[in-house]
């Protein structure tokens, strides 16, 4: 079997695909955004409850491939309780991990830089799937900025 596939479909990804976190409905939502990859049909919706500049609660809805849905689940865990500034930094690191030649993830110290989000590092080897992993983050961006409630990535 191709090595890349084992890196792509790690146990963590499959666990988050089958048992997605933060799926429960939340009340008194402050921000909401819908994300959509029209070409492949992946969908992610993000609801946020804010406490000042901090995301105190998050709820995810959506359907799609394991990468998009696991990424949404992993993201929801990573950002809960974080400030907008902390989230922006995570987002930047995540984007670098997905797109940059520079390997920011240290194989000697798994999880040291981005925690469980590092499980998605293998997506980089599959360029057409990067947009699946990025969709939840693009949707979160829109929810936080509050400038629109829909985002489409391609």
């Amino acid at each position: 079997m191709a090595v890349g596939l084992d890196n792509l479909y790690k146990e963590v990804i499959l666990d988050h695909y089958r048992n997605p976190r933060n799926r429960a409905e939340i009340r008194d939502v402050d921000r909401h955004a819908d994300g959509n990859n029209p070409l492949c049909g992946d969908k992610v919706a993000v609801d946020l409850v804010l406490d000042g500049n901090t995301v105190s609660q998050i709820a995810i809805k959506g359907q799609g491939c394991s990468i998009s849905q696991a990424s949404a689940s992993l993201m929801s865990e990573a950002i809960k309780g974080k400030t907008f500034e902390e989230i922006a930094r995570l987002r930047q690191l995540f984007t670098t991990m997905m797109t940059s030649e520079d390997p920011i993830v240290d194989p000697e110290r798994p999880g040291a830089i981005l925690g469980e989000l590092e499980a998605l590092a293998g997506v980089k080897a599959f360029p057409v799937r990067i947009k699946c992993a990025s969709l939840p983050w693009a949707t979160l961006d829109v929810a936080i900025s509050g400038t629109a409630d829909q985002v489409t990535t391609d």
Binding site: G4, L5, L8, Y9, R18, G64, C65, S66, F126, C132
Partner: peptide
């Protein structure tokens, strides 16, 4: 099963 077709397509492509 519950494998999303896009995942299936990636896996088949690798094969």
């Amino acid at each position: 099963g519950d494998v999303h077709p896009h995942d299936l397509s990636t896996i088949l492509d690798e094969n």
